[in-house]
């Protein structure tokens, strides 16, 4: 007799087991998000948008309404929805390519306009769905299909620092953090704060999630975890970069 793993209440049982690769971090990120939705009691208000790339595999993941959009365009779809109906809670879920490359203008402008939405960006340092090409987040010297000798920082620059950028350009009411699937309790906390910031009508909230891609990293379980915890954290600092000052408090 097997014991069923405990799933968040808002997960859709009919679409489990999920479609992500074994060892992929998306399942963990979406578990932390599911727990945050459950604990905030907002399942009836959430509209979840997912991007192109691996994130699209979440298109039937939750018992919440979901729209799967185009590459990089989840942020404007959720922005348009939220503007039209502010009672909904809009979540734009994307990968690093969608948020930092093809859709970077949308992320930047949603942040500067202080859109009352929550953007979640899963960073696995490569384009997973298309076969492991270099992403804006690829680490220096990391080998990918389009940087087969390792990412050259002279030719292609350093990894994008997303939450730091959002923190720099967004208003004081915004929230920006970077969590990791290696610390689920903290990640869930970041998601809850990000969603609460939207519920309170404060402003834009953004959480980057450090995640894993053993399929394209070509790593075993041990190597995957080592890369996530030791290599990625050298460039991507986990923590909060901007927290909205509570009403009446000094920021």
């Amino acid at each position: 007799m097997s014991v069923e793993p405990k799933m968040p209440k808002c997960w859709r049982k009919e679409s489990k087991p999920h479609k992500f690769c074994p060892g992929c971090g998306h399942g963990l990120a979406l578990k932390a998000l599911g727990m945050a939705i459950d604990e905030l009691g907002i399942q009836d208000k959430v509209v979840f948008g997912c991007d192109i790339g691996c994130s699209l595999l979440a298109w039937d993941f939750f018992d919440v309404d979901i729209v799967q959009t185009h590459h990089g365009r989840t942020t404007p779809v959720i922005t348009g929805l939220k503007r039209a109906n502010p009672d909904l809670i809009g979540i734009a879920y994307m990968g690093d390519g969608g948020g930092y490359a093809i859709g970077s203008q949308h992320l930047v402008n949603a942040a500067t306009r202080n859109e009352k939405i929550t953007a979640i960006l899963v960073n696995n340092t490569n384009y997973g769905m298309t076969g492991g090409q270099m992403a804006p987040t690829t680490l220096p010297n990391q080998k990918t299909e389009t940087s087969p000798y390792g990412r050259s920082i002279e030719e292609t620059g350093y990894p994008t620092q997303g939450p730091e950028m959002v923190a720099a350009i967004a208003r004081d009411e915004a929230y920006a953090a970077r969590g990791t699937v290696a610390n689920m309790r903290q990640l869930k906390g970041f998601f809850k704060k990000a969603l609460q910031n939207q519920i309170d009508g404060n402003g834009f909230s953004f959480v980057e999630v450090l995640s894993t891609c053993p399929t394209n990293w070509r790593t075993d379980a041990k190597g995957t975890w080592k890369y996530l915890e030791e290599e990625m954290t050298k460039f991507f600092k986990v923590g909060e970069f901007k927290t909205p000052a509570a009403k009446g408090e000094q920021s």
Binding site: V67, P76, I78, T79, G80, R83, A84, L88, H106, N109
Partner: peptide, 21 residues
């Protein structure tokens, strides 16, 4: 809403439609 480009104008319009407007 004045958007950042026409891609965003089109996709936010889609968001408005999804919200039933």
């Amino acid at each position: 809403l004045q958007t950042e480009d026409e891609l965003s104008a089109g996709f936010t319009t889609i968001g408005g439609v999804l919200a039933g407007k």
